[in-house]
């Protein structure tokens, strides 16, 4: 497992993809900061037209609770896209670049290789989440947002962290799809479908029963009047995460690798 982990980390370090995902989360934190900046002065928001309108969708007030909630919601929706791409890249590339055949008859088992990929995906997403939080705290401090308290910050950071953890769990079926489809496209397809149906089903009011809607509900994206996802929703997320890992490992171990 250590051998597989070392190779996966080397492959990730040499790729440009981590930088692309870091840029995406930097932009997300920056956009949230821009909205706060606009909301700090409503007159300025109105004078900016469309941007002012969009910014007002984040919340009415430019303060720490609003900004931390924005970061959690970004993690729920943007995270599905960015964390999903991490999984698609980690698994799909082996098929897209035909390197998978060099991973199949080794002293390091296929299961160890799959688990190492999931560990790297989790570490990678953890780093991105920490980056988002740190950038958010810096931006909020620079903007001198009101409403700071240590309890509020801890709660906000915990919400972002929990949302990120749930989102990471929900990307494991994307890794499975990229493996079964032997490339990037099937993984991207499943990821887009999950994002689309998460929006639709949450809008219909059944989000708590659809795992991919749960992180957004948990982060408060549906608004203060909406119910949190509850224990069932959280269990469904955990179940999907575990099922994705198990299915991917079994597929790598048992499926014919004849292409």
């Amino acid at each position: 497992m250590i051998n597989a982990l070392a190779t996966e980390l080397l492959k990730a370090r040499r790729s440009r993809v981590p930088w692309v995902t870091a840029l995406a989360f930097t932009v997300a934190a920056g956009v949230g900061g821009l909205f706060m900046f606009i909301l700090q002065d409503q007159g300025r928001a109105r004078s900016l037209g469309l941007i002012g309108t969009k910014a007002s969708l984040v919340g009415r007030d430019a303060d720490w609770p609003t900004y931390l909630a924005f970061l959690a919601q970004t993690t729920a929706v943007g995270g599905m896209l960015v964390f999903g791409l991490v999984s698609v890249w980690l698994f799909g590339r082996e098929f897209g670049q035909n390197t998978v055949k060099d991973l199949l008859a080794l002293p390091t088992s296929r299961t160890a290789i799959v688990l190492a990929k999931f560990v790297v995906a989790a570490l990678w997403c953890l780093v991105l989440t920490v980056q988002l939080v740190v950038l958010g705290l810096v931006i909020g401090t620079v903007l001198r947002l009101p409403g700071w308290s240590a309890d509020l910050a801890a709660s906000g950071v915990a919400t972002v962290g929990a949302t990120a953890a749930m989102t990471v769990l929900l990307t494991t079926p994307i890794a499975f799809a990229a493996s079964v489809g032997r490339g990037y496209l099937s993984g991207v397809g499943v990821m887009m479908a999950a994002i689309f149906f998460a929006q639709v089903i949450a809008a219909l009011g059944y989000g708590r029963y659809f795992p991919w809607s749960v992180p957004a509900l948990f982060s408060g994206l549906a608004g203060p009047d909406s119910d949190p996802p509850g224990l069932l929703g959280l269990l469904l997320v955990l179940l999907v995460g575990v099922a994705g890992v198990v299915a991917t490992a079994l597929w790598w171990r048992n499926a014919d690798q004849d292409r």
Binding site: N3, A4, T7, L10, R14, D102, L106, P107, T108
Partner: peptide, 12 residues
């Protein structure tokens, strides 16, 4: 060399 290092690590 890095490709060979990956192969070497996976072979322990």
């Amino acid at each position: 060399v890095e490709n060979l290092t990956v192969a070497a690590r996976l072979r322990g």
